[in-house]
Computed example of a mutant assay.
Amino acid sequence: MTMNILSWNVNGLRARYNNGHLNWLQDENPDIFCLQEIKATEDQVKETLNGFDDYYSFYSSSTVTPGFSGVAIYSKIKPNKVVDSFGDGKYKEEGRILLAEFNDFILLNIYFPSGANSDKNIQAKMLHHKLMFYDRFLNLTESLSSSYEKVLICGDFNIAHKPLDLANPKKASKKPGFLQVERALIDRLIAQGYTDTFREFTQDPYHYTWWSNMYNLREKNIGMRLDHFFATCNLKDNIKSAYTRPEIMGSDHCPIGVEIQI
């Protein structure tokens, strides 16, 4: 069985639906799709969306800042279990995490903190929060990999890992999203036995998943690859393709996907 799994930071799920930006998703008909930054509660989503009745749906929304963050998983296969934290309730209130356990693998859908702000004092606090969030995430991924679980992780990581993952690495290296301390977090994940699925299929540059809305940067393809699918090595051979969908408009991010043989 080959499954098509998609991930997309929609930057407002209701807005994407109302503007017709989800029509392609209904046509694509993936087996599972994971969304970040839905910016809505489960009730608000269900009052708005139509056309996804074939899916089991799961949501985690922010209780700290309503209308901020939020993640969702839509799956044609019913998971055995879904939790909305790292397992200990930590960060549950931020609406950033959904962990779904299926028979053949564990799926993590995460919207990681950005760590960026125009105010330097606020940014320092946000970056600290991002690093602490990642530290808790990496504790979980290490535990899962050491238990030989098959794990697939997707979402908006808010980190570009390598210079070929963004248009202006020298300039970006001084800002959150490409700081060395952040890139080292992805190195830690890879050292635990996880692989960047997209880079298993291409080492070519100019593949980005996020573009600023300013200065027509998307049209010029001046962006960053901030959205990723990572898989444990024991699942790597099951990944038959990994891709980006920059032609899909609506959000400042584009969808990404993998085809996985189960």
Rank of each mutant, 00 (worst) to 15 (best):
N139V: 14
F58K: 04
P176E: 04
Y194F: 15
L6T: 01
T63Q: 09
E94I: 01
P246E: 12
P30D: 01
Y215C: 03
I260H: 04
R199P: 01
R218F: 08
D54M: 11
K78C: 07
D252K: 13
Q261G: 01
E101S: 15
D196M: 14
Y215S: 06
I262P: 01
W8G: 04
C254W: 05
Y55I: 11
A160C: 06
S7R: 02
F33A: 03
W211M: 09
P30L: 04
T202A: 12
V71T: 11
N18M: 13
G115P: 13
C254V: 09
I73R: 08
G70Y: 08
H128G: 10
H21A: 06
L152Q: 04
S114G: 00
E47A: 14
N103M: 08
A124E: 15
E142M: 03
L164S: 07
Q261S: 10
R14F: 03
A116R: 15
F178N: 02
E219L: 12
V10E: 02
A124N: 11
C34V: 08
Y59D: 01
N109S: 04
N121F: 11
S143C: 03
N9D: 07
Y17V: 06
A40R: 05
D237M: 11
D84R: 10
R16W: 07
A231W: 00
N213S: 10
G193P: 02
L22G: 05
N234L: 09
T48C: 15
L226E: 00
